[in-house]
Amino acid sequence: MSKGSKHKVKKFGMVIDLDKCTGCGACMVACMSENNVPFKENESKKLDSITWMRVYKLENGKSFPEADICFLPRPCMHCEGDRGHAPCVSVCPAIATDYDHNTGIVSQIYTRCFGCRYCMAACPYHARYFNWRDPVWPEGMEKFLNPNVSPRMRGVVEKCSFCHHRYQLALDKAYAEGRDKIEEDEYQTACAHACPANAITFGDLNNKKHSVYRLKKNPNTFRLLERLGTNPKVYYHSSREWVRRAGDNYLKHEAAKA
């Protein structure tokens, strides 16, 4: 960003179409594979299982045969909060996480984090995960580790980065080719790219040419826990009223956001 050049601020975000999401879990594996997320023999203890992208199964609470379920992929919401004061960012005592005003991405720096977990207490989405133990790759499996993401050590918090390294690599390519800007398809998160149902759309929410700009304006679009003021950058789309209502808390008599 050289001085003087008119620099348009980007705001990367997602629109996830819950009508299309089949709950297959491809996004989760794409994410784990891309981001060197560790795994262990028993991952059934879900509160001790690092899944930057986690697919929740929502139920409508009705009895057979009116029962309905919906899958909801939950990456980090990259909350903007009030001018960058995401719930987790402002609480970190050591600036191990920050809100990038140029991209809207909330970072997590593993080597700065000293593991106080205040950010985890702050995040209502449970998008932050702690390395309760040393990650172990069985012999030979360390070979598939991605050099563009640093593996974490025990005792630090990690979370979805919107595959920021893919942005860095796209920029590198653009610079080498004498460009300043990158196209929409040059920077896609691993989950968005992998989704076999094309349910995840990723792009710059500020850019009118990007699909997310249009998709987020659909009336059936909502964000999780908007009422808390977290101002997340992940939008969801569902044609089912009960799903939209499940996105936030409402008092009994209240109607859900249109």
Partner: peptide
Amino acid sequence: EETGDKGSCFQCHK
């Protein structure tokens, strides 16, 4: 000095 801003964490971290 050069950009007027130290930059955000992710500018140089991965």
